[in-house]
Amino acid sequence: MIEVKNITKKFGSTLVLNNISATFLSGKVNLIIGQSGSGKTVAIKSMLGLHEIDSGTIFYDQRDFSSMKNKDRQIIRKEIGMVFQGGALFDSKSIEDNLMVPLIMFSNMSKEKMKYRINFCLKRVNLENVNHLYPSDLSGGMQKRVAIARAIVLKPKYLFCDEPNSGLDPYTATVIDELLKEITYEYKITTVINTHDMNSVMQIGDHIIFIKEGVKKWEGSKNEIMDSENKDLNKFIFASEVFKRLKSLS
């Protein structure tokens, strides 16, 4: 479980996160939703320590991450998997070497066991025979799946995804969403996903936090979201005709 309490982040004089508190549950898909520029990515990067917060606290299973020194944070970071918006695969390395990096750095596995684990993770994301290809040889959807495989290769306790299906076609986006949901339930991971894709929200959102202009405006489940009275949330969700019709039907 991850708990953030009253976190605030400024860039210069611009307040990007304003006093946000939330709890992200383990074994659940937790979503942070909001418009582009609402502060979702900053929120996730702050939780990971890639941006230093100005005030507030962040706890990973009762461990105060925000007040830790960088050296101590590395211990928690080894328990975290992260899928970046663009995949962030190392383009000078093959797919196998991409997955090998965390294993070589932080596991005592033999070479054979590492290869077995890599093949297992690639198979888990429905990729096979790509070990010796390079990221540039793969499609966007395949790159995202490799990024997910790399994120889970060390069996993380926490999984963060920054807009994992941005730039993907609707079918591939659904495949990625389902994959993230399955992995979360299978390994009881605390998964936190940034998205503004309403299909993802309705498909996998166990616990949803809505942010607008750096302020948390709403929190609930995908079942509650359709009946919410929150004006900002409704304006965001029912922006498209499809969801407006869905709302009128419900």
């Binding site: 990067k45 890639l50 211990i75 962030a88 695969l89 750095m105």
Partner: peptide
């Protein structure tokens, strides 16, 4: 250019996230 590209494509963030 190699390191700069790694920075803007979040590859450096990915390394940091792995605790490297």
């Amino acid at each position: 250019s190699t390191i700069g590209t790694m920075r803007v494509t979040e590859q450096i963030d990915a390394l940091e996230m792995m605790g490297i």
